[in-house]
């Protein structure tokens, strides 16, 4: 519903955004693909030329890759489980008639605004340190031996930190969804004789289903790329115990200067993300009435 002139104008207006994003998407991706088939190491500049599948075989064949892939899945899965279940519970609680709801909302959302390295360092030093962390004090209070979290349970510790950051996000979105459920619908269910559990199962949960899907998908996108939390706490260790794919690429490509192998890892990461993206696009796209 517009004239040819507005359509022409609109193309011109969109051009800058489309062009920069097109370059941003294509150039580095093509380069990554190219490097992934090259022998290219910054340490050994003599080694050049076409590598075939060698980089992929090297990366995928390395036991550290399998472990990183498993770690990535555990990290994403663990954080999702904690945040979605915890978030649903918390959203239901905050939706009850309680005093100070507005302030509570602000308090609960706060961890989301803490930058990842700060979050990681607070937990690492203030809470999980066996000598002077708060959890150590708590363990001692109960007469237990303080736990050296990052050495004994490195991946679990990272999961806790990341979940702490993302629980507010899940809670806030699920709470928003919950509050859009009409009071009348709830009352109608009550009139129909549904008890609290039935109401949750038949009315509230279906109403929140879409928001839960969106929470899962958006978090997955971010969680696949978890980096800073690992970098400032465990550095991926001990060994590869807390290395995910993102950190593995960083380790191989930047820390070990093996551009070829790092790129191959990057391509693998892109493929994984695309699978998730496919589902997210479908969920968000349905809502789009363009």
């Amino acid at each position: 519903m517009a004239t040819a002139q507005t359509r022409t104008l609109s193309r011109i207006m969109m051009a800058p955004a489309v062009i920069v994003l097109l370059i941003w998407m294509i150039v580095p991706l093509v380069m990554t693909l190219w490097f992934s088939f090259q022998n290219y190491s910054l340490i050994n500049p003599m080694m050049t030329g076409f590598a075939g599948w060698a980089n992929y075989l090297y990366v995928i064949g390395d036991p550290s890759f399998t472990q990183s892939l498993v770690n990535t899945l555990i990290l994403v899965g663990g954080v999702l489980a904690i945040t979605v279940i915890g978030g649903t519970f918390l959203a239901l609680l905050l939706d009850q008639p309680i005093w100070g709801q507005g302030i509570l909302r602000i308090i609960v959302i706060s961890p989301f605004f803490v930058m990842p390295p700060v979050a990681a360092l607070i937990w690492k030093n203030g809470f999980m340190h066996p000598g002077y962390g708060m959890l150590g004090h708590l363990w001692k209070f109960f007469g237990l031996q303080p736990v050296d979290w990052f050495n004994q349970y490195p991946l679990f510790s990272v999961i806790v930190i990341v979940a702490w950051q993302w629980l507010p996000f899940a809670t806030l979105i699920l709470l928003t969804a919950l509050q859009s459920l009409s009071e009348e619908q709830r009352e109608a269910a009550e009139m129909d004789g549904a008890n609290a559990i039935n109401r949750f199962y038949y009315i509230i949960l279906p109403h929140m289903a879409r928001s839960i899907t969106i929470v899962i998908l958006i978090q997955t996108i971010f969680l696949l790329g978890i980096f800073a939390e690992i970098r400032v706490t465990t550095g991926g260790g001990p060994g590869y115990a807390s290395t995910n794919i993102a950190f593995l690429v960083f380790r191989t490509g930047i820390l070990s200067n093996d551009i070829g192998a790092g790129s191959a890892g990057g391509v693998v990461a892109v493929v994984i993300a695309n699978v998730v993206a496919f589902f997210l696009m479908r969920a968000v796209g349905k809502n789009l009435d363009a």
Binding site: A246, I254, V270, V284
Partner: peptide
Amino acid sequence: MLSTKMMPAVGVLIP
């Protein structure tokens, strides 16, 4: 446009 946001940073870090 949204899909460009899904590209993992590590995938393009090296280039």
